[in-house]
Design a protein around this nucleic acid. Sequence first.
DNA 1: ACCTGAACACCGTTCAAGT
DNA 2: ACCTGAACACCGTTCAAGT
Lengths: 217, 217
Amino acid sequence: MLEAAIDFVDRFGIGELSMRKLGASLQVEGMALYRYVRSRDELLDAMVDRLLDQLYADPEVLLRPEDDWQAFLRRVAGGIRRMALEHPQIFPLIATRHRAAPWIRPPLRSLRWIEGFLAALLSRGFSEDAAVYTYRAFGSFLVGHLLLEVSAEGVDPVTAAVDPGSASADGASLDLSAFPTLTRLADRLAVEDLSEEFEHSLGNLLERLEEARARLA
Amino acid sequence: MLEAAIDFVDRFGIGELSMRKLGASLQVEGMALYRYVRSRDELLDAMVDRLLDQLYADPEVLLRPEDDWQAFLRRVAGGIRRMALEHPQIFPLIATRHRAAPWIRPPLRSLRWIEGFLAALLSRGFSEDAAVYTYRAFGSFLVGHLLLEVSAEGVDPVTAAVDPGSASADGASLDLSAFPTLTRLADRLAVEDLSEEFEHSLGNLLERLEEARARLA
DNA sequence: ACCTGAACACCGTTCAAGT
DNA sequence: ACCTGAACACCGTTCAAGT
């Protein structure tokens, strides 16, 4: 049923998710869902938790004996990015929904994840300060880069379904005539390879984290 | 009326914003609002635009003759952060709402802002490539750091109003006993000064941007 | 020019009643 | 144990009608 909710949102977007419609997709009246979940709000939280748990179980993000910390961070970053792109409608929830404590930093927002992440760093020789510093910087990095990426491609299916003709999302129709610098740079702005940008920025982050690690050793 | 909507959301949260209630706060039936706005959705977009326009008019974020590019970026970063903290309920919209073109990167997401930002960098000797690179990196940085900050303090007023007793947002009540590393690092995790972290990370970003600027000169 | 009232098709949620 | 039907208090949105 959680899976059904995730599928539903992936397909139609969060705006379309109602208890009644989700029920219908399960051949049941919407009211029946209250057997499994206390409210729609709790359902959204449960979806977020589920995705995080799924990712945690992904062997690709597991710390391997031969991994140094940088390899591990690349592994996790790749896994989170894959998840974000697979569920572009849900990732914003991971970034923005209320957290149980202020020190929980999206997108690694389950206790299990934070535990595993910090333990991995400590096992690779990080000081406690350096591990915490890295946890924070890594989270902000991922949110900053991935939220953007999913909301870029995330043509809100609600609008798209209602009015399939208005897909001017490429911005070709934007009137830049009042903005000379924008006009001048339009070609350069249009060229973006977000995969490449992500890898490049991740490389930068790892360098910066290495400096911090040494400083906080 | 836009102002009223922004006030309303600042006070009660976006979940509480309905056309009828916003109307009531203006001594009018909700249906009257459709004179000024085509839909609730458009209203949210208009609120986002308004905040960005307000910020654009803030003399604190204006490029000054004596500013080098780093001073300018600090100015803008400070202004955006102030805005985010003043409107923690609205900032997530700035980060996540549908954009007119994929190269528009939150939070500097109005054409006016992008124009001004890029022109300022060019005026300080940036190459076109370096200016675009900086625009992108700066946006991701701000979203990554500020979204976090506003959703940390953003005790969702919807929930809070209904159930003022459940304010366990400090996480003191979280059961960490199954997570030894978390338990060990709990004290360190709890200590966070997000202002300081923001300034520190901004400093890092400026260094990295200086390298990129030189490389892309 | 601006607002209201009634209406329509939806919501989330509760709860007694069914099987 | 699990689901349904009816009900309640809401939504966004349209539109004819009022002033």
